[in-house]
Every structure is written in C-alpha cells, then in structure tokens.
Design a protein around this nucleic acid. Sequence first.
DNA 1: AATCTGACGCTAGG
DNA 2: CCTAGCGTCAG
Length: 648
Amino acid sequence: MQMLEKAGKAKALVLTLVYQDGTTQLDPEQKLGPPVCGLLALMKNDLDCSTPEDPLGPNDSLVYLKLEHTPAWAQQHAHTSQEHFTRDVLLQVLSRSQPVVCYKAKDFLRTALQFYRRDLSWKRVAGCLIQDPQVSGWLLDPANPSSCYQDLLNKHSKRPPTTSALGVKKVSRVISGLCSLFWLNMELCSKLQSQGLWELYSDMELSMISVLAAMESHRIHVDKDALKRTSDLLGTKMKQLEQEAHRAAGQMFLVTSNTQLRTVLFEKLCLHERCENKKLPKTVNKQQQSTSEAALLQLQDLHPLPKIILEYRQVHKIKSTFVDGILSCMMSKNYISSTWCQTSVVTGRISAKHPNFQALPRQPLQITKKQYIQGKEEEVVTVHPRAMFIPQEGWTFLAADFCQVELRLLAHLSADPELLRIFTHPQADVFTMLASQWKGVSEVEVTSEDREHAKRVVYSVVYGAGRERLSGILGVSGEQASRFQDSFLQTYREVQAFIQRTVQKCHNQGYVLSIMGRRRTLPNINSPNWGVRMQAARQAVNFVVQGSAADLCKTAMIRIFNLVSSSGSLSARLIAQLHDELLYEVEDSQVERFAALVKSTMESLQHIDHLGVHLKVPLKVAVSSGKSWGSMSELHIPPSLSPPSPLH
DNA sequence: AATCTGACGCTAGG
DNA sequence: CCTAGCGTCAG
C-alpha cells in the first residue's frame, strides 16, 4: 500500500502499456498489435536533476502492473488481490490532479476500461487529466502527424537522439524512453502555449481522449446470422451480374478490374466515339478514360453493359466492405467496436476504422432475386447494413443531427445577409429556400431537382471543389457547372468576400484558424505553381468551415459526456460520431429525457461565452430514435421540456 | 511459387 | 475538401 501512496504523491506520472512481446507504446507500431500484458508507470519526483545519461533520479521509482486475466479455472474470486491493487492504482491515476503523461493515452484508458469492465464504470474516465504528446504533436502540425513515438521525438526534441543504441538493456531503454516522454511532453506543452493552442488542447482535445476511450470500450451488438445470410445472397447476385456483364460484353473479363473494363468499353465497343457531344471524365493521375460512376452514367443509354457494371459495383461494395468487412472485424465475437482516431484528420474531425462506422450506407439497397421456380414473381429483398446494428435489450438508439452545420457556419463566417436570413425561419426547408432565393422563383415552384442542385452547389463551395468536380457530381457540363457556381457567388456576395478574405489571410500569415483556434499551416499557399497554390487556397477555405464544424461537434460530445458522467441516473452511451451526427444507446425509460438534454445542449453551443463564440445563426438539432440503426424515426421535443442549458 | 508493397482507381460517408 | 477500405496490377 506504500506504492499507492507514492503514486498519489508523485509530482508526475509517466505511463506506457506493455505488450506480450515485450514492446511498449513507445516502440514502432506492430501491424497486428499484440495483446496487452501490463502497464509500466514511472513516478517522478525529481523533475530537475535527471539527465539523459542517468534518467532516473534518486526519488523516482518505477512500477509494473500486470494486466492479464487469470484463467477462469484458476480464479478464486472475481478478482485477485493483485488485480484489486492494480485497479486502485488506476483509480488513483484517473483522479489525480497532477499531470499524467501517456503516448496514445486513449489506448491506455480503453484498456483499463476493458480490463475492469465489471467494476470500473466508463463514467470514471470522465474527469481524468491525462496528457498525450501524440495529440499535442498533431495539433501543432495536423498535416504531418508523426507515425510513431520516435518520429515525434526526432521532430521536436532539441537534444540529439539518446545515445542508447546497441548493447543497452531493454529495461533501461524503456526507462529512458519514459523520461524522454516526460520532457517531450513539457516541450510540446510550451509549443502549444506559444501557438495559442493550449486551450484547444487542454479543454477540448484532452477531454476527447476520455470520450473516445469510453466509446471504444462499448460493445455494439450485431446480428451476425443476418450478416452471413446477406453475404450469401449478395454473392449469388454478384455471380448473376457477372454473367450478364460477360454476355453484354461478348467476352469474359474481370468485372472488378477497371483496366479490363476500360479495354472492353473503349477499345472493343468504342462507346466514347458514340457520344462526342458529352465530355467523359478522365482518370486523375494518368489521364485515361475513366470508368467511374459519372462516366458509366453517360454511357448507359448506348449499351446495356454500363448499367450492369453500376449495379455490380453497388452490390460488390456492400458485400466486400459492409458485410464481409464487418464480419471479419467481429472475429469470433457477436459484437464490434470501432477504433476512433483523433489524430488522423487535418481538419480536426475524427475518423473511424475496423470497421469505418462513418461510411455505412445511409440508404438500403434493393436486390431483386430471380427465382426460377414456378411462380414467375421476382422477390425483392432490401439489404441495409445499418439495420444489422441492434441496441441491447431494453435500450434504444438515439441519433442527434446538427442540421446543416457547415452551411450555418458559412453563414456565420461570411455574415452574408441573404444566407443569414434563411436561418431565421426555423421551420423552413433550408435548401428549398436556398433554391428559390438563388433561382428567383417562389418556394412552391422549386422542384426536387432544383433543391438537389442547390445543395450540391452549396457544398461544392464549402468543400472548395473546382469546376470539373462539380460538373462530375452534378452531371452537367463544366460550362454549366461553373455558371451555377458563379451565380451562387453572385447571389451571396459576402460568401465570396469570405473566401477571398480567408485566402488572403492565409497568404499573409501562412496559416488559417478555425472558430475555436484550430490551426493549419499551408506552405503551398505561396507556391509558384498555380495548381498547387489554388489547391492550398481551397484547403484553407475548407479547413475553416470543416474545422469549425468539427470544433462544435467535439464540444457537443464532451458536454454531453460530462453531463451523463456526473449524473447518478443517466446511463446513455455514445456509440458513434458521424461528423455532424451523434449516435447514442439509451435506456428505454430515459429516451425522452435524454433527447431533450442532447438537443438543448447541442443547440446551446450557438453561444459559448468563455470562448467568445457567438454564432450569428441559431443551431438546429434533429433527434431520432429506433430499435435498429436502420429504422430511425424523428422525435419531436417540445421546447418547454428542454432544461435550461447547464454549466460550462 | 507464393507473398508482399506501393501506386492507382473507385466509392461509402461527411 | 478529407477520410477508410476494397479492389487490380506491376515490380
């Protein structure tokens, strides 16, 4: 118990996970990360007197905590006394007010939550103040995140790399690694401060570590049998389509090969010669005839093959990525949890992998199953990957969507009066209003096609897409696309002014900032090469909008997380973040209460006093719920039910 | 003789 | 614009 006291009193704590092959988080990452076997903690008390040559001061000490489950057959009690001790140390770590440093801290927190799944609530990680140099390094230069600890160290350490090359024992290598980690953290913190990134780091990104760790430690149940049945169904459908494709082409070829498809379409069938009035897209790198969706849509009236390929690709995508892909993520389990990456997106968004939860198709896919049985009826089956995700018994999925955040932010950032006016009407359909305003017709005259066009033009402006890209997305000529874009910018003059202002600022100072001070430096903004320079300009504009939206969504996640963690009764858990949408699993009895809380918390972010954020537009949140992610229906929250916005 | 790697193409999401 | 992930193909 001496150790516990020591851990509590130490001036600083530096941690790393240890894996079964003897490596730590400071070693270059393995392909298939080996299982964790323990935790190494350096308790530092002599912050001044240690040198790289003798990293361990007289009052510093090192402790190894075993994190391995004893096999069920050897268990006396639920946990051994050693496991209880380790848990107490972990609790000590989570509630410390002194700094704790860990490279890839999220992995540490998640491991702790997984190991003590039974008696360490995810709520306990909420308040913890753990620092992570990986996150610091990313905030300082989000475009070039370091690939491993050594990389990060080389990039930021003033001293040359430590002299320990060969012949030094593994233990002392690890110790000096932990010490360098401590100093690196100090160095990065001062850099953050001098760049004005400290608040963003300590108030937002560090809190995100806990949010993501809790999210990763949650198990999402998946209907595995349905997934397997779907895999077979799609498999037979693909075989049928493959045969049809061969018949239409008049030869065998590999349907999944773009190279071979290109040969069939343009060298054998010569379809490009029959549509000289249309401009067919080229591949980006090699300027060949593209076989992309946009190209095939142009060709579909000339020959049956393009349509078959399009359908084949749809089915193939669903099967390979969203059915078989998810099955392979499940291994022998019947649940999944994605890995959420905090430092892989330049704009400050988070990304997901294994599986990528953020790319699951929104729309179900219709499959017509040909039945060669007596009745000539064709059976139609709908395949919907999202519907495979099921809440636990007695729980419900709840989704909260920030409606048109990026567009609202564009309105705020540009202060364009016409764009702002659209958002003063809370009831109206934004894109319908936009289309009517822009095309100069009344709202009832706006066709769904107009609305869709307006939407795409808007986001192409937000994303900074060029003429070619827009014409591809819109399915019109490049001429027409740029006319659409110009007319949009003519209608919303201040938007254009905002774009010019942003590019100019980037030009002057070399970087741009999001609404909460996130930063991206763009060296290419001064490139002599026109194409490169224009690319940087689009990236600058896009960063401000996308990065600011990311700021808002992260703030929402953190606030809701803190509210639930500090509540005795609330139990809702975050399942996924889809950029502008948060997906929760909520106890049935708490759905209404939680929905009101989420909605009011998110909408209250229009004003964040202590950050000086005051959006000129209201934020709108749509809430929906359902017993599967595939069937969510909107929930209408009476405004009176919403509690007043809580502290912070 | 398999396997791996990097470049490229396409598409799901926002 | 910025992601993850599935494919082919050449070396």
